[in-house]
C-alpha cells in the first residue's frame, strides 16, 4: 500500500517538473487516502472485551461482598491507616531527599575522604534489606539501651535518655525509611548531575560563579529532568514500603486493613480496599510528577 504511493511520489519530488517516471502528472493530482489503522481498532476491541469479562467475573464473584468494600473504604481505621502511610511516606521522602543530595555531592566531591564516605553510605544503606533495617532501628534499645551525650573517650556522660523513649515506633520507621531511601536516591541524583554536560559547569565557572552557585543555578535545574521520573517512582515505592513498618510499629494502611480482615474474615474485600487507596494515592502522585516534568521541559525540544 505504502509502496504504491511513495514510489511515484519520489519521482515527482523535484518541484513538479516533468519527472522521468511514467504517468507523473496523473499521480501528482491524486489525493492521499485516509489511513484506517485497522490493527489498532481490532486490538482495542479485544482488550475491551477481556477487560469487561474480567471485571464481570470479579464483580459477580460470590466471595466478594461489595457492601463490605463500600463500608470499609471510608472506615476510620482505614482512613487512619491511610493518614499514617501518607505521613510516613512524605516525611521519610523529604528527609531522604535532602540526605540524598548530600550523599550524591559527597560521591562527586573532589575531596577523597568525602567520596569514600558517600560510597560507604550507599554501600550500607542500599545493601542491607529494608526490612532488616526497620527491625534494627526498631530494636535499637537491645543494642544501645540508653542514648547519651558525653565524651566517648573518657566515658563521662553529660545527659542520657532511655532509647525506647526517644526512638519510638514512628521515629524508628522514619529513620529506617529515610536512610534507606537516601541510599537509592543519592545514586539517582548523582546520575542526574553527571548527565549535565561538563561544558555547562565550565560556562558557569567562566562567568565567575562559585562552585555552589554553578551547581544550584546551572547544573541541578538541568539534572532535575533526569532526576524527577525515577524519584517519582521512588516515592510511589515509598508509599507502598510503609507497609513494612508493621513489624515494629504498624498503623499503616495495609496493617490496618489486615487487622480488620483478621476479625471480620473479609480478606479479599480488605485487600481490595487497601489496593483502591494505594492506587488513588499513587495516581495523585503520578499527576504531580507529570506536572513537574512538563515544567522542567521548558527550553527543551
Amino acid at each position: 500500500m505504502a509502496a504504491n504511493r511513495s514510489e511515484p511520489a519520489t519521482d515527482t519530488g523535484p518541484a513538479g517538473t516533468a519527472g522521468p517516471g511514467p504517468d507523473t502528472a496523473g499521480v501528482s493530482a491524486l489525493p492521499v487516502a485516509r489511513q484506517w489503522h485497522v490493527r489498532r481498532w481490532v486490538l482495542a476491541a479485544v482488550v475491551l472485551l477481556v477487560a469487561i469479562a474480567v471485571a464481570r467475573s470479579m464483580w459477580a464473584n460470590p466471595a466478594v461482598d461489595h457492601a463490605t468494600i463500600a463500608r470499609y473504604l471510608t472506615a476510620s481505621a482505614i482512613l487512619g491507616g491511610l493518614r499514617s502511610t501518607l505521613i510516613l511516606a512524605v516525611v521519610s521522602m523529604a528527609i531522604g531527599l535532602v540526605l540524598a543530595v548530600v550523599v550524591a555531592l559527597c560521591r562527586l566531591s573532589r575531596n577523597p575522604v568525602l567520596r569514600v564516605l558517600g560510597f560507604g553510605y550507599v554501600w550500607v544503606f542500599r545493601g542491607v534489606p529494608l526490612l532488616v533495617q526497620i527491625l534494627l532501628w526498631g530494636n535499637l534499645a537491645l543494642f544501645y539501651p540508653r542514648i547519651a551525650l558525653g565524651n566517648p573517650f573518657t566515658g563521662q556522660v553529660a545527659v542520657s535518655w532511655d532509647t525506647n523513649a526517644v526512638v519510638t515506633g514512628f521515629v524508628a520507621s522514619v529513620l529506617a525509611l529515610s536512610l534507606n531511601e537516601a541510599g537509592y536516591t543519592a545514586e539517582i541524583i548523582r546520575a542526574g548531575i553527571l548527565s549535565v554536560p561538563a561544558g555547562q559547569t565550565e560556562a558557569g565557572r567562566a562567568l565567575g560563579l562559585s562552585r555552589w552557585q554553578t551547581l544550584r543555578t546551572v547544573v541541578l535545574p538541568q539534572a532535575m529532568r533526569v532526576i524527577v521520573p525515577p524519584v517519582g517512582t521512588q516515592f510511589i515505592n515509598m508509599l507502598k514500603m510503609t507497609s513494612l513498618v508493621s513489624v515494629i510499629a504498624g498503623g499503616d494502611l495495609l496493617t490496618q486493613a489486615q487487622n480488620i480482615s483478621a476479625t471480620s474474615l473479609r480478606t479479599i474485600e480488605m485487600l481490595i480496599v487497601a489496593s483502591l487507596w494505594y492506587l488513588a494515592v499513587t495516581s495523585v502522585s503520578s499527576l504531580g510528577q507529570a506536572y513537574l516534568e512538563r515544567r522542567l521541559a521548558r527550553g527543551h525540544r
Binding site: P197, G199, Q200, E202, A203, G204, R205, A206, L207, G208, L209, S210, V218, P221, Q222, L296, R298, G299, H300
Partner: peptide, 21 residues
C-alpha cells in the same frame, strides 16, 4: 572566582544555559 569574573570566555559549542531564556 573574582579573577575569573573579570575575564569573559566564549566557547566553541556556546554552552548557553538551555533551561533559561
Amino acid at each position: 572566582n573574582r579573577q575569573r569574573a573579570a575575564v569573559g570566555m566564549v566557547f566553541q559549542h556556546f554552552h548557553l544555559f538551555p533551561h533559561r531564556t
